[in-house]
Simulated scan of single mutants.
Amino acid sequence: MQKFEWTDSLSVGVPMIDTQHKELIAAFNDLSDAIEQGTGSTSIKKLLVFLQYFTEWHFGQEESCAAKHKCPIAGTNQQAHAKFLEIFGELKTRYRESGASEEIARQVHTQLADWLVSHIMTIDTQLGQCIRHRSTSVA
């Protein structure tokens, strides 16, 4: 399974957001390890629960920051987050209903990790530019 390494191309230039993104990438890499090692559905389920709660918390943090800095991309970001949570919920349900199928776990990993990297590199980088610009213009 594909693993993700943090690179400067993923940095949005806002330390709080970058740190949270690093945690998400680490969790996806842990999910990859669990699937590859066949450590059983228990560890995969725990990672899925962690990913759900952490992404919800992270999205709330990011959306609050975007609102505070009145970023024009804030609405688009919020819609993208809602779509992610919808897709995540559907995949998690499919995983549970499949009896913890490794194939569905792989789909969860691939689809969501690809979404995350794409989201960071498109929407979140714009969000980071706005936050950095508004933070320096206020100071």
Rank of each mutant, 00 (worst) to 15 (best):
V138D: 15
Q52W: 02
A27V: 00
T7G: 11
L116E: 07
Q2T: 12
G13D: 06
Q129F: 08
H81M: 04
I131A: 06
P72T: 07
I104G: 06
A34P: 02
C130M: 08
I44K: 00
A26M: 03
A113P: 10
F4P: 11
I87T: 13
A113V: 13
Y53K: 01
T136Y: 10
Y53H: 05
E23V: 05
L48F: 00
Q37A: 14
N77R: 12
F4N: 14
G128F: 08
G13T: 05
A105C: 06
A82L: 09
T76K: 12
A26F: 01
A82Q: 14
A100D: 13
D18L: 01
F59R: 00
S98Y: 09
E103L: 11
M16Q: 15
D124I: 03
P72E: 11
T76N: 07
W6L: 07
I123L: 08
I120V: 09
D33E: 11
V14W: 05
F88V: 01
Q52F: 02
I123C: 05
H58M: 03
D124W: 04
A100E: 12
A113N: 12
R106V: 12
V12G: 06
Q79K: 14
D18Y: 03
G128I: 04
V138I: 14
V117L: 14
S137N: 12
E102F: 09
K45W: 01
C65G: 11
G128Q: 03
D124A: 05
G38D: 02
V14N: 08
R132K: 13
A82W: 09
Q61S: 15
A139K: 14
E63P: 10
I17C: 06
T136P: 04
V12L: 09
F88Q: 02
G60W: 04
E90R: 10
L48Y: 00
E23Y: 03
L116Y: 06
K22Y: 03
E103P: 09
Q79G: 10
Y53W: 04
G75A: 10
S32V: 03
T39A: 10
S101D: 05
S41P: 01
S9M: 12
D18T: 03
T122E: 13
F28P: 01
P72Y: 09
T125G: 10
R94T: 13
I123Y: 07
L112Q: 04
V117M: 12
